[in-house]
Design a protein around this nucleic acid. Structure first.
Lengths: 343, 343
DNA sequence: ATGAAAGCGCTAACAA
DNA sequence: TTGTTAGCGCTTTCAT
């Protein structure tokens, strides 16, 4: 005999209720909903009618509990104030929702102990995979994901390992396009504002810039390079430093849009006209670049394609969790706006 | 006898495992983890040690299944490309994570049928409440939330109902501070770029602007008012329209930062110097306003306080689901940056 | 093609 | 103060 009372739930319907109304078993209801297994068309129709009639809303926690699957993917972002990330999130969420999945978000400085806590949260919620938007992090933090066989995708880390794939951004073509564009405009002294000292992505982008210059027959001049921090402040002070040079660059490429925004701000404050006196190139292709005066020429990646590749990578890691994940590449293209002009 | 095989889970530990190691029952483990009920300190210590030793990670789907609680709050945002929303999301997430909760995100144009689908997703996941960042929407879309007794908080709708609270933003003080600030700078002809025609929030902010002008003894001039769309494009063309006037305003307030960005862009393109020739005031206090040349003076709301109020409202609705939710107010304050100067 | 049964991990009611 | 027990909804295996 049942001694405990049923708890007060708001949800009176379950598959059994539906089954009863349709005159079938709840297993059949499950088969209809999941489109799996053989069900007579007439039966399926009856079930669908019952679902409709009852306004039945399935409860995925049953499945999560029983089978450890959640249809939730974790997404770890370092910084929601950098427009790059919300724009990616938007596309990622859209791609997930289209397949009945959900995003579980964690905003975490990846170099902090917070990363380990975010990972734990995701493990608790039994996520089916994690996209870690970072190239540099303490590998011990993701160890728990690996040991629980949760597929991982990192971004632009350019390394893969057992259970983890990587989606790299092909900055090389983007910076090359930018170099061609600037050279055509007559620029010869092209500077660069990089990311944070020592980071892999930072080095990759600087290298891409250097190679691009060489490829169009221009010299790379170390004196025209400054390091930033991927943020506005870094771009701003780097630009100020470049402006202090006796022989200034006539164009400056940057490591990301936020850095370029900082540079544009420094130029505005110094009353130097863009693009008349100097040209600026960003990297990200974020929407705000369209507005930021005078419109930022930028090396853009397709967020939509990136989301798709991340999800694809996640699936292929899951399918083969015992081997190294794939290393996918997303192309980049130059978007020309108002911040670049004749030298 | 058990005929089905245990499914392949990555998680070998549950409360029973912990209980066994600690020499107690799994109910006691639950009590220790939740800090509820009486447990002898020594017993609790043994349990904690066992949890530690096993690296036990609790599985909330058990609770969700049994009791319909998820420790997840839904957040419905209209637009992640408006920096206001990611900045709010950041704070909201932080506040939730601090109490072991999660955000479930939906990015949805609230006037579309997508809203109903987002609501359904949240119902499926058994969210404990929903923050709907919208003042205008088809009420039928949230009907399912109400009927399932899911607490709702709307933003700046300025209406509450059974099961739903509202967090309104007190724009009145913010616009008043802005009016005082501009008057002190010598401005007499102050224009306004509003939101979308017909929306409540749009009307509220326009009204706040009008009242503010009156309060400082200035005349409201309808000819200096334009409607926008809360986005960059609207602000841009509205500003262009204002610039076409024979007698231009010397300062313009806007309905939000994105609109102000658009206005600043239009002014840049028209080679009109800000704040030398015209002053601009935004509304949101988003971080990007700091950078956007020449730095946007803006009416800011504290995202942190807003998150806190939303969560508080959600709790008080839940505690009293049968009555009208509270109507809370978040203050706004003027943040002075470079876009305002002497007339 | 359909049904029966089992069990995932949890918390709360009750018993001891 | 601690243990026992029940059952939330689901999918899958096995039987029919």
């Amino acid at each position: 005999m049942n001694t405990t009372k049923a708890p007060q739930h708001q949800f009176a319907q379950n598959m059994k209720t539906v089954a009863r109304l349709a005159g079938v078993s709840h297993a059949t209801v499950s088969r209809v909903i999941n489109g799996t297994g053989l069900v007579l068309p007439a039966t399926a129709e009856r079930v669908r009618k019952a679902i409709e009639q009852l306004g039945f809303i399935p409860n995925p926690s049953g499945t999560t509990l029983r089978y450890g699957r959640s249809k939730v993917f974790g997404l770890i972002l370092p910084d929601l104030t950098n427009p790059f990330y919300p724009e990616f999130l938007l596309n990622f969420e859209r791609a997930l929702v289209a397949t009945e999945h959900e995003v579980m978000l964690a905003t975490t400085q990846v170099s902090s102990p917070e990363l380990a806590r975010s990972v734990r949260r995701m493990l608790m919620r039994r996520v089916d995979g994690v996209v870690l938007m970072a190239s540099e992090f303490d590998t011990r933090s993701i160890e728990p994901l690996l040991s629980h066989r949760v597929p991982i995708v990192t971004i632009d880390r350019r390394i893969t390992q057992k259970g983890a794939a990587d989606v790299a951004i092909d900055f090389e073509t983007g910076y090359l396009q930018a170099a061609i564009h600037l050279k055509k405009l007559g620029h010869r002294r092209i500077g660069f504002i990089g990311g944070s000292e020592g980071l892999v992505t930072s080095k990759v982008r600087l290298k891409a810039f250097q190679t691009a210059l060489e490829d169009v027959g221009l010299n790379y001049d170390e004196k025209l390079t400054r390091m930033g921090d991927y943020r506005v402040t870094g771009g701003r002070s780097a630009m100020q430093s470049l402006l202090a040079l006796r022989k200034r660059p006539t164009a400056v490429m940057t490591v990301n849009d936020l850095t370029a925004f900082g540079a544009l701000r420094a130029l505005h404050d110094a009353k130097i006209s863009v693009p008349d006196e100097i040209s600026i190139v960003g990297c990200d292709g974020s929407l705000l670049g369209e507005v930021f005066p005078p419109g930022l020429t930028s090396i853009a990646v397709s967020f939509e394609e990136m989301s798709r590749k991340c999800l694809g990578a996640l699936h292929s890691v899951k399918a083969n969790i015992e081997s190294k994940g794939p290393l996918l590449v997303v192309p980049s293209t130059l978007v020309i706006r108002g911040s670049t002009g004749p030298a």
